[in-house]
Amino acid sequence: MVRAKAKDAKFIGSSIGGAHIIVRNTLNGHILAEGETTGSTGNTDLIMRSPHERYTQLSDNDTAGFLAVVDIDEPTFVQIEVISPINKRNAQIHASTQIWLIPGKDILGDGIVLEIPGFIIDILEPNTHQYIPLETVITSGINIKANIVMMCGCPIQKDGLWDSNLMEVRAVVQKDGEAYTDVLLDNPGQNIFEGNLAVKESGYYQIMVYAYNSKTGNTGVDKINYVVRD
C-alpha cells in the first residue's frame, strides 16, 4: 500500500484527482507497478485533531491509496515515486523513497506514506492572456482573485481548521518585464483570496500569486500574463 499525504493536511485521493504512484526496480529501472491513489481524504478528526501515539493507524478502508501488486521471486530494492496532484501541473510535487520488498511479505495498513508539501493555487482573475482596455480599469483597478486549497483539496478559510490567518498570500506584479508592485490578498470566503491592483498605464503585465505559511513551511505559486491596452 502506497499513500500520498498533504503536509499539515489529509490524504490525496479521488476528490483532487489522485496522486500517481510508480514502483520501480532500482537495479534496472523496470516499473513493477503503477497507478493512481483513489479513495477519500480520510478521517479528519483522527488525522488532524487527535494525538497520535506510536503505531496509530491514520487510514481506514476508505482512505485513498494505491495497492501495488508486485511480482518478485527474491528480495528486491525498489524506488517508490509519487507525483501529486496528478491533475495540477503548476502545483505538482515529486517525492520518492526506497525500500526492500520481500516476496510474500505484505506492507499494508497505512503502508508507505509520502508527504506532499505545499498549496494548490489557481488564479481566477484576470484570465491568462486577457486583453483589458485601459479605460475600463484606470479608475476601478483590476480585481485579482485566486483559489487556494491544501494539496489534498482541503478547504482554507479564516479561523477554519486550515486557517488563512496563518498564511501570507500576495500577488507580485511585473509590467513589461520590470517589477511593478505587489498586492496583499484577503480571504473573504472559503478558498478565495482577493485584492485590487491599481493600473494607470497600458503594457504587458504578469501576476505571480504566492501563499506562505510560516508555521508549517507550506508554499505555493501560480502565475499568469495579461495585457492592458489603450
Rank of each mutant, 00 (worst) to 15 (best):
I121N: 04
A68W: 02
E115S: 15
G118Y: 05
P103L: 05
Q98I: 00
N143G: 12
M167T: 04
I156C: 05
M48E: 03
D62K: 15
I80Q: 08
V149A: 09
N147Y: 08
N87D: 13
T136A: 08
D71K: 12
Y55A: 13
D106I: 07
I116N: 00
S140F: 01
A91V: 07
T139L: 10
D176I: 00
E53N: 15
D110E: 02
K175V: 02
G177W: 07
A171M: 00
I144R: 02
K145T: 11
T44M: 08
S140D: 12
N165L: 10
C152I: 00
I86T: 03
K88P: 01
L124M: 13
N147F: 09
D159L: 15
L101K: 00
V183N: 03
R49T: 06
L67A: 11
I121L: 10
T44H: 08
G65H: 13
I102S: 06
D71I: 06
I156Q: 12
K105I: 14
Q157P: 00
I107H: 10
T63D: 07
D73F: 15
P117S: 06
I123L: 08
T76K: 09
S84N: 06
T56L: 02
V172L: 03
G160T: 12
D110C: 07
A68H: 02
P117F: 05
I72S: 04
L114R: 05
V70W: 13
G141E: 05
D45K: 13
S140V: 00
N127F: 10
E53W: 09
P117H: 03
G118T: 07
V82R: 01
R170Y: 07
V149W: 05
S50I: 06
D60F: 03
D163F: 07
R89P: 12
T44S: 11
V137C: 03
I123N: 02
N43I: 10
V169I: 15
G177E: 00
I138H: 06
E115N: 13
G104C: 05
Q92H: 02
V82K: 07
A91I: 04
I138K: 13
T136K: 10
V137N: 00
Q79H: 04
K175E: 05
D73H: 14
C154M: 04
E53H: 11
N61W: 13
Y55W: 15
K175Y: 02
M167C: 04
N61Y: 12
Y180S: 01
N87L: 10
P51W: 09
I142R: 03
G109R: 03
I132Y: 04
D106P: 14
I47Y: 01
T128S: 12
V82W: 07
I142S: 03
K105C: 13
G65E: 14
I148V: 09
Y131M: 06
W100Q: 14
N61T: 14
N87E: 11
V173H: 04
A64Q: 05
Y131L: 11
D60N: 15
P117D: 08
D62Y: 15
N127K: 13
E115T: 15
S50Q: 13
T128L: 08
P51D: 12
G109N: 08
P155C: 09
I99Y: 04
L134E: 09
P51Y: 09
D60I: 10
P126R: 02
I116L: 03
K88L: 05
G109C: 01
N127Y: 12
S50W: 08
I144W: 01
D60V: 10
I116D: 03
I156R: 14
T63E: 09
A64L: 04
I120C: 09
S84P: 04
N90E: 14
D159Q: 14
W100V: 14
